[in-house]
Amino acid sequence: MSIQLTDIVKSFKTDRVLDSLSLGVSRGETLVLFGPSGAGKTVLLRLIAGVIDPDEGRIVINGVDMEGVEPEERGIGMAFQNFALFPHMDAHANIASPLTARRRTRADIEDRVNEVAELLKIRHVLGHKPKELSNGQKQRTALGRALAAEPSILLLDDPLRNVDAKLRFEMRLELPRLLKAQEATVIYVTQDYKEAMALGDRIAVMGAHGIAQVGTPEDIYLTPADTTIARLFGDPAINLLDVVPEQGGGGPEIQLSGARMPLDTAYAGVVGRPCILGIRPETIRFTEAGAPGVIPVEIEAETPLNEKTVTLAATRAGREILISRPAGTPGPDRGTAHIAIDPSGALLFDQATGKRIHPGESA
């Protein structure tokens, strides 16, 4: 089923949480809602589910306007942060409850509950009631209940928040496969950018009162709409340096540590405009002195992080730069070093607004 939200407004007293929000989710798509706490992600799920009503705007599911349609009539599976488990039922009965309501056979129910419990690693607690479960087990039980009924639409509110790191990693691999197999339309809330990148066909980044950017994980990472979004995605974080592009002999360029770094010629229109240069740490490499565009830096610290090594360096003006390279790759750990930056990977943002400057844009 498809979901279409048009000009949604929702306020609580004087606090306007969502302001003229519009968003579409295609049939069978997994859309991740990503953003900080308080951005309105859970509110948006509750509006779609029918738990609360919008002040303004339309919610259309599979071509049908949901105004006046009760939650139980919307054909939606939900797993919210507060678990909402039946306290008098054990985990097995909680997961089975939507199947029992549909009068599925006992054999079908057993097969489905065991399948979901195996995926979520909770078969050993199926006989336990909610008060006997840890928060992580409660969360997985709530997720299992949502998955068991194989609904056409799934609303998942940070369902792996209380899960340990190992299982969380495994679920990032398994959940997409399961959701695709069910052909469900999914809206998945998370504050973990790695989870958003792993699970989403598209990501909707929520900002103040609405959607700040929608795109594929690659779009969001490589072409963030502003510096705020650029900072949210990536570990280590993107380097953001104040610069003013100049006109060089071969096109636009900037100066770092007294060296000239060329920019893509498509940025010729922003020469003289105060900008912020965005450079992902993994796009910077150590190199030998003397090559064109090489920038001298001083190594301040080096930190091994399992699969990568992160180096903190400083330009001659004292501006810090993070450099990331695969673990085991040789690189300097002290003293003066030289780096090269691929101009095609450099981003420019307007210094006043933080908005990304598109290639070809003029000052």
Rank of each mutant, 00 (worst) to 15 (best):
Q4K: 15
L5W: 03
K10Y: 01
K10G: 01
D15I: 15
L18C: 09
S20D: 14
R27M: 10
P36C: 08
V43W: 07
A49R: 02
E56Q: 15
I61C: 02
N62P: 09
G63D: 03
G63T: 05
E67T: 15
E67R: 15
G68H: 01
R74P: 08
I76Y: 12
F80D: 03
P98L: 07
T100W: 12
A101N: 13
R104F: 11
T105I: 02
A107Y: 09
E115G: 14
R123Q: 12
R123E: 12
H124Q: 12
H124N: 12
H128W: 11
H128C: 14
Q139P: 14
L147I: 07
A148D: 10
P151W: 02
I153H: 07
L156C: 11
P159K: 05
R161T: 13
N162I: 05
K166C: 06
E174W: 01
L179F: 09
A184H: 07
I187Q: 07
Q191A: 14
R202F: 04
A204S: 11
A204E: 05
V205D: 10
M206Y: 05
A208S: 13
Q213H: 14
V214F: 11
I220V: 13
P224L: 10
P224W: 10
A225Q: 12
A230E: 10
L232R: 14
D235K: 15
A237L: 09
L241C: 12
D242P: 11
V244T: 14
P245I: 00
E246N: 02
G248V: 03
G248T: 07
S257L: 09
M261Y: 01
L263C: 03
L263I: 02
D264F: 06
A266R: 04
G269C: 05
C275M: 11
I284Y: 09
A289W: 02
G293D: 04
I295M: 11
I295E: 09
P296G: 03
V297E: 03
L305M: 14
T309H: 03
L312Y: 01
A313G: 00
A317F: 04
L322H: 08
I323Q: 04
A337N: 01
I339M: 06
I339P: 05
S344R: 11
S344H: 09
S344Y: 02
D350P: 11
K355G: 05
